[in-house]
């Protein structure tokens, strides 16, 4: 057995700091609504920086991350007040939760910690699952779009438990030359490892899930040594058979964890298509999910599909779908 991959874990949040942060945030949000969203685009930089820094000081870097996205949203074109109010609603929910943090059930505390940017601790994990896991996809954001903290999320899927698990880490991404596909993986689940080489590998591992009303966040406790086999598309008969079923699954997850930001969705037999300027994933040509407009590799989906049904795995965040991997006949490819 190899040691678990190292994940930089910030210290746990301090409840008194969180309560203070919640009060600050609540007041700031009230002021913004009292003065009107129309005043936000003209606000000077210190207006935004002040609350962001106060949230970092209040052990809530995740809230700071959500706040950083607000300023670009005020300049995001037509319909921006709609998007800004939605984000303010999320922040209000968080602010109220921070004020009552100690009174909340453990599962909800775990979900709030996830939004605040804390990875689960091995000693407080509530669910352990030993299974054969496959690396289904990885999201890596270098923080550029929203001047954000760099984030990496690696999605795993358990063969027998039929569970999704998400390892996430925030902080600086590895620097230097990108590894070439020729170089072997150091560890299939090493989140900062060579994803190109780790993608699609099965590995027997024990994962522990943090407290949550809808457990997804996990850390790897132990991983069996290789060799690791490459997953074949026939082994991955997973996911929802229709878009409606996927959305029902999301609604169910959201009812358990209203703070859920990314919901893992595997869709079977969908066809990428274009309607006007929107790219969609259609199931059987009756219903569709919109693909995230910033997704750069949308034509890869078309190329791999060729107009035929494919299976896609990605993240659904309530409005758009972000594809992370595709499988079709012989191919299983990260996009």
């Amino acid at each position: 057995m190899t040691p678990p991959p190292t994940i930089s874990n910030p210290s746990r949040p301090r409840p008194t700091f969180l309560a203070n942060g919640g009060r600050d945030l609540s007041q700031w949000l009230s002021d913004a609504i009292y003065n009107g969203l129309s005043s936000l685009p003209e606000q000077p930089q210190p207006f935004w920086d002040g609350i962001v820094n106060r949230m970092v000081d209040a052990d809530a870097p995740g809230v700071a991350r959500l706040l950083r996205r607000l300023q670009p949203l005020t300049k995001s074109g037509e319909g921006w007040p709609d998007r800004v109010l939605d984000q303010l609603g999320r922040l209000h929910l968080l602010a109220e939760s921070l004020l009552r943090y100690e009174d909340l059930p453990e599962a909800l505390q775990g979900d709030i910690q996830a939004v605040l940017g804390y990875a689960p601790h091995l000693d407080e994990c509530v669910l352990q699952v030993a299974d054969s896991w496959v690396v289904l996809g990885r999201y890596a954001n270098n923080g550029g779009a929203f001047n954000d903290v760099p984030t990496v999320r690696m999605w795993l899927y358990g063969k027998y438990s039929r569970r999704f698990a998400c390892q996430s880490v925030t902080g600086p991404l590895p620097t230097g030359r990108p590894l070439s596909p020729d170089e072997g993986p150091d560890h299939p689940f090493a989140i900062r490892g060579n994803f190109a080489a780790a993608f699609g590998l099965w590995a027997d591992a024990e994962l522990t899930f943090g407290p949550s009303a809808y457990p997804l966040r996990a850390v790897v406790r132990q991983v069996c040594e290789g060799p690791y086999n490459m997953a074949t598309p026939s082994e991955l008969q997973i996911g929802y058979v229709s878009i409606s079923a996927a959305l029902e699954g999301y609604a169910e997850a959201l009812s358990a964890n209203p703070f859920l930001e990314q919901f893992p969705v595997a869709l079977q037999n969908v066809i990428p298509t274009k309607q006007g300027n929107t790219y969609l994933l259609c199931d059987d040509f009756t219903e569709a999910l919109p693909i995230w407009p910033g997704f750069a590799n949308v034509w890869s989906l078309f190329a791999l599909s060729g107009g035929e049904p494919i299976s896609v795995f990605g993240e659904w965040e309530g409005q758009f779908f972000l594809p992370l991997s595709v499988w079709h006949k012989e191919a299983f490819i990260a996009v």
Partner: peptide, 16 residues
């Protein structure tokens, strides 16, 4: 906050 969660949960698929 309440309506935002409800909107997300009640999001329906796009007819094609």
């Amino acid at each position: 906050a309440l309506a935002g969660v409800a909107r997300r949960a009640g999001q329906s698929a796009i007819p094609v």
